[in-house]
Design a protein around this nucleic acid. Structure first.
Lengths: 222, 222
DNA sequence: CGGAAGATTGAAATTACTCAAAAGGTGTGG
DNA sequence: CCACACCTTTTGAGTAATTTCAATCTTCCG
């Protein structure tokens, strides 16, 4: 139950109290924790599994705004409604913090507020990084950036980072990177052909030359 | 000195104390408050004027991640270094909060931390909106979305919202919307030709049909 | 008024998209 | 265990939106 990411600042005592306020839930792949537009009634701490967050345009175009893993926090909303849908990618467990409880909790534990501010600040920085990717990088650069990010996040969670497991479909990657499925596939094929990466068993990808990969991701590649 | 956006939660007493911890600065157009990679030494509250925030790729490609106006807050960084450059668009006044003072302040006024969390949460939501724009909208839709946003922000500050003043260059708009200057210009010309907007004196743009404009922005336009 | 920067317009090139089909994987049921 | 259906991924060919390169026009200051 203890989350490195959110609860690192809390004492065991505080954690004990926290656990009384929350309930654990299990979510199956394809299931939604909540939908864009739903009343923002709770926050969540991801215990394990993987989620995708996305927004839709009226005609169905989709933008995935983030992938979440073990330890990640979600659900804070500046409005009364959630601004995105949270859907399960791989079976997930999450603890649910009803909004009213969040308020009590924050009132009682000022440190928690600081911690959440810190997390929000990190998310904001990566959102800006993603804007740079979406606004100014080529397809090739986007794919390279994404695979490196995935690898880094796996490392942060203490999981194998190279080869890195890629739990999302090409379609999800496309909707995250502002590309079509076909372009994602072609870009990956090109990286494979040039020997920068190798596709492995079990949806894993080996980054053969991390330095070159980093250079490609930054547009310094060729 | 009193900022609606950041300081709304503080009492006059607290504001008095705050003013002792800060200093006011004036910045000229083109000047930078700080550069990407600089040590993150201070936070800022924009008193008036306009700023742009941007990130660069090694080869000079630029992504503007935000425009800031009166009342906006900036400078929180999850790392030791700023993640972007903050440059002045129109002469600005800002009050500067050295990082050490920020820590004291947050320790003394827990409400401030909550307020900052709330602001960060709003920024995060608009960052996600921007990802949708950059990843999935056409040039036309991006321009329409941007002009509506600009108009809304002006309204929030109590300024004239229609016609709306556009204080940034076509080049800045392009780097914010992930487009080239030429595409920005052509898209605006098209909106002008179809009668949805009218270009006015003093870099102002009139939105003749806000409903249609909103439809265009959402991709429901035609 | 003159010069420089910014904005617009035109034509050609390119990247990524669309449409289409084949190949590869996975799970179910015979 | 194989056959089939379904879904994802890959590959191919043609198209379209946006970029690039180039030139002209406008605006803004000194």
């Amino acid at each position: 139950m203890r989350s490195r990411a959110v609860c690192a600042v809390m004492s065991d005592d505080e954690l004990g109290r926290l656990s009384k306020l929350t309930q654990n839930q299990t979510y199956a792949p394809g299931e939604a924790l909540f939908f864009e537009g739903d009343e923002a009634g709770a926050c969540f701490i991801v215990q394990d599994g993987a989620l995708k967050l996305y927004k839709l345009l009226p005609d169905g175009r989709r933008q995935i705004t983030g992938f979440l893993f073990k330890g990640d926090f979600l659900g804070l909303s500046p409005k009364e409604e959630y601004g995105f849908t949270a859907e399960v990618l791989e079976e997930a467990h999450a603890c649910v913090l009803p909004a009213e409880r969040m308020d009590e909790l924050i009132a009682d534990y000022p440190k928690l507020s600081n911690r959440l501010l810190n997390l929000a600040s990190m998310e904001l920085a990566s959102a800006q990084e993603q804007m740079l990717l979406l606004g100014r990088k080529t397809a090739q650069e986007r794919i390279a950036s994404f695979l490196l990010w995935l690898s880094q996040r796996a490392a942060d969670r203490g999981e194998e980072s190279n080869p890195v497991r890629v739990p999302m479909s090409r379609s999800d990657m496309g909707d995250y990177l502002g590309l079509t499925v076909e372009t994602v596939s072609r870009s990956i094929t090109k990286l494979k052909t040039t020997g920068v990466i190798t596709l492995k068993e079990g949806n894993r990808i080996e980054i053969n030359d991390p330095e070159l990969m980093t250079a490609i991701a930054a547009g310094d590649g060729c």
